[in-house]
């Protein structure tokens, strides 16, 4: 594995809100994390927990209106990206920090050839000549495993399969050899058989290029093998963070526990899968308490009074935002009795 170096990206208390019809939606509300050179940060959580908004905020791609980054800092090499000019921000996007998206079917422009969409990145950032840009693009397509790249480069996205399109997206993101690759659920929309290939590809390119990766997923299993650090998000906040080991072997937030129970595991004998009951909260109607408490098996009275402070668990790298430790606390709501 490549050397993990110093912190290159530091997100501090990021807050991104949307103005909706029912009021302010606090999609991201106080998220902080560090990303080190060459490191892999996994972000997990149910859909709607604010993972994409966190990442779009880093690149300042939040549509405004209705969204706005209302607080926090995003320090990239100590420079706050939230205070640079639009022109400077453009020089970062796609060049030093790139992003690939969930749905490769809609994320490529259907009206332009794949080649056009690749070369324009190099032309924009390096003022590359058309011939140069084309050659580099073909190289990159070959590198991400697209056969006959000299021919495929002149085709349109609809002539590629879903997995191949995601490879094109990856090629596009890596053309400028970025320091950070943000992969927002890169495997959610592709066939199960392709998912492992895509993840392998991201892993090996990371090793070769030394790119740091933020890997977003709602599937804990995906990040288990890759991430140095994992953030678990719920309702716009980080509820637990730690190494893969911490998260998998000593989950310390009831939500993390619930996530783990709901995915199949090979390392325990328990074969029963238990979904988390209830539905995600309405982000426009959060109160002062813990937003997970209506679904929580360990909820107590104080959970509705204030948001639980962050508590260090065992190793210094392992934190959870919960009053109780699900490993030791008794459940307050026996599962069998849950009937609304």
């Amino acid at each position: 594995m490549a050397e993990v170096g110093d912190v290159i990206l530091s997100v501090c208390d990021l807050r991104t809100h949307f103005r909706g019809e029912e009021g302010i939606v606090k999609a991201v509300d106080g998220v902080s994390f560090d990303l080190r050179r060459g490191g892999v940060l996994g972000i997990v959580g149910e859909s709607g927990s604010g993972k994409s908004v966190t990442n779009l905020s880093i690149l300042r791609l939040i549509p405004d209106p209705p969204g706005r980054i209302v607080g926090g800092e995003i320090l990239f090499h100590r420079q706050n990206l939230l205070s640079v000019t639009d022109a400077e921000m453009r020089k970062v996007r796609g060049n030093r920090i790139s992003m690939i998206f969930q749905d490769p079917m809609t994320s490529l422009n259907p009206y332009l050839t794949v080649g056009r969409q690749l070369t324009e990145v190099l032309e924009e950032h390096f003022a590359a000549s058309p011939a140069d840009a084309r050659r580099q693009s073909i190289d990159m397509l070959a590198r991400v495993g697209i056969p006959e790249p000299e021919n495929r480069i002149d085709q349109y996205p609809h002539q590629f399969s879903g997995g191949m399109r995601q490879r094109v997206m990856i090629a596009m993101a890596l053309l400028c050899k970025p320091e950070i690759l943000i992969a927002d659920e890169p495997t959610t929309a592709v066939d199960v058989t392709i998912q492992a290939q895509i993840l392998d590809l991201i892993g090996s390119l990371r090793r070769d290029l030394g790119t740091a990766v933020i890997l977003v997923t709602h599937d804990l299993g995906v990040v288990a093998g890759m991430a140095d650090e994992i953030l678990v998000m719920y309702a716009g906040r980080v509820v637990e963070r730690g190494t893969a080991d911490d998260i998998f072997h000593r989950p310390s937030h009831p939500y993390t526990l619930g996530l783990l129970r709901s995915i199949p595991r090979l390392d325990t004998s328990e074969s029963r899968l238990v979904p988390i009951r209830g539905t995600p909260p309405d982000l426009a109607r959060l109160d002062a308490g813990c937003p997970f408490r209506p679904r929580c098996d360990f909820a107590e009275a104080r959970c509705s009074e204030s948001y639980p402070p962050t508590r260090t668990v065992g190793a210094a790298t392992h934190e959870a935002a919960c009053f109780v430790d699900p490993a030791t606390a008794p459940t307050t709501t026996p599962r069998a009795e849950v009937e609304p």
């Binding site: 979904p275 988390i276 009951r277 209830g278 539905t279 849950v338 009937e339 609304p340």
Partner: peptide
């Protein structure tokens, strides 16, 4: 008169 399964009514 709704049951809850899989988190969805």
């Amino acid at each position: 008169n709704a049951r809850v399964t899989n988190g969805k009514p």
